[in-house]
Design a protein around this nucleic acid. Sequence first.
DNA 1: TTGTACGCGTTATCAA
DNA 2: TTGATAACGCGTACAA
Lengths: 339, 339
Amino acid sequence: MSKRVTAKQVAEELNISIMTVSRALSGSPNVDHRTKEKVIETARRLGYVPNQIAKSLALQKTDTIGVVVPEITHSFFPEAIRGIEKVTYSAGYHLILTHSAENAEREMDALKTLAAKRVDGILISTAESVTDYDIYSDIMNLKIPTVFYDRCVMGIGASCVCVNDKHGAKKITEHLIEHKYKKIAHLCGPLSVSIGRLRLAGYKKALQDHNLVFSEDYVVESGFHEDGGFRAMDKLLDLPEKKRPRAVFAVNDPAAFGAMKAIFKRGLSIPQDIAIVGFSDDIRAELLPVPLTTIRQPAFEVGKKAVEKLIGHIENEEEKIDKIVIDTEIIIRKSCGCN
Amino acid sequence: MSKRVTAKQVAEELNISIMTVSRALSGSPNVDHRTKEKVIETARRLGYVPNQIAKSLALQKTDTIGVVVPEITHSFFPEAIRGIEKVTYSAGYHLILTHSAENAEREMDALKTLAAKRVDGILISTAESVTDYDIYSDIMNLKIPTVFYDRCVMGIGASCVCVNDKHGAKKITEHLIEHKYKKIAHLCGPLSVSIGRLRLAGYKKALQDHNLVFSEDYVVESGFHEDGGFRAMDKLLDLPEKKRPRAVFAVNDPAAFGAMKAIFKRGLSIPQDIAIVGFSDDIRAELLPVPLTTIRQPAFEVGKKAVEKLIGHIENEEEKIDKIVIDTEIIIRKSCGCN
DNA sequence: TTGTACGCGTTATCAA
DNA sequence: TTGATAACGCGTACAA
């Protein structure tokens, strides 16, 4: 941050006070239009750029929203960010982006940074490796308006914007059931993360509603990434052939991609030997050798709704704490056995 | 930004001065370890979070880097951001993300915002629609350290980190020439953007080196997005059948994706009727019905190198202005006619 | 080891 | 319409 032109210098140049400069530039009505013009002209000539830092300190407002992203390369998140960015831009807010890299410690760091930078509000999607919610409570105690998006923590007094995870998971599991598969496994996410818990619940509910037995052996934790999906599927494939699942519901598409690789590696076919479905509708899902049946999450919409809610909290004390659920859509392709 | 605990309150709680609190918390050596412990304990108990805004104002340093991204959903950029983020995190900097959405006006806005927020440095990749470079000069005049990444503006005194665009373009065009194609078209980017200019130059050079005639009719501007690629290809396909190109080099993969759609829509086959190659190695490139031959750009590396250089400029006045060129790799798949 | 005074650049407030 | 002063919360420099 190098030495730069200040309002003081503009004022001295014109032999007027700093306040007049400030007023002229911020469009205050109580300023002679002749002096106003002079100020504007001089400011431009001198290359004056108002210091937002000083303004933020004086006004106790940064016009900035902090965003915590668990994994920037998951196609869901760039799309969500685009939604977030569109709204913040037109509302006159700016974005500080932090990346937790699915790591709880880095997430804590990110949150502390955002608190220290006095962002007006925080948008967060929890990291894969979170185990306790203390840090979120700390943020809530600081009274920083916070909205969870996609991966939420309920019951700590923050608004949430997510998709109908349980319903979607149930629906896509039921789709597998319609295909007459009996032995259906689930590659699940960590239970400390909302979407991990809810999608597992939807899977269980589907089995239960259709009188299929639930077996612990058929639930393997994969995490949210491709490599975890590969390892988890490998474990299922190690089961004696008779016990081997006939279909798999992966907690998200990247995990499904990994699982597909594990299946192909054993020389098995999808869906002939094993059917598989995912969740998220990654941009790659439709392009795979066997296009993936999945649940589409409107990422842009999730991001958009989340900031809108957050800005509500920031600008209006009375804004109610809400849980906003966005509908998903099942996208049927071939990996489930259709066509 | 709500009322929050300050160092003053911590000091009053302990009947000591603010400075002692400041010193204790910033790990200054000249402070009794007993008082230090008390301060730390009290700070935690009161939920004190040091105000970075105030600190930034006092120290004239924000420890923040501003990033301008043209299109967050292009797979190149999230990957570049990941590289940027990794370095900034370990170097103790934070990231303000702005999105120009390929729009010159929004880019200008973003730059002004970053200047006003007194970021320590700026990382920028120019928007598709830029026509003049005045705004960049303004930033340079403000003496804000700036590094261009991927899409660069040379000769205005800023460092650049890019890939060997011209060389890569030449190489992949030559690959088409090796396939004995004579009529090779180019879907080009805007010439006001470095990569648009350079990739066109590489294409021209390849033709020239192999004694193929260059025709203006074979260069159609597509921009960097899928829809532009579709439209540009459509134009080429409207040429009388005799003049129709036999192969196409698209300025980037998204444009190539659009072009492929246009080709398929006419009932033509790739590569039998028309061969096509791209540039960037989008994550979808290998998954397409006809996998796309392309040039791989190490996005993570570009991002990483760019911040490293930027941090050099920020922390060391003497840092030389550089143009860092990163090697690319040709990825041969099937859309070119191989296999 | 601890404390006091001042500055960072802006805006709000009150006075002229 | 304009100006002087205080305040925002911290760190530097110097004094005790």
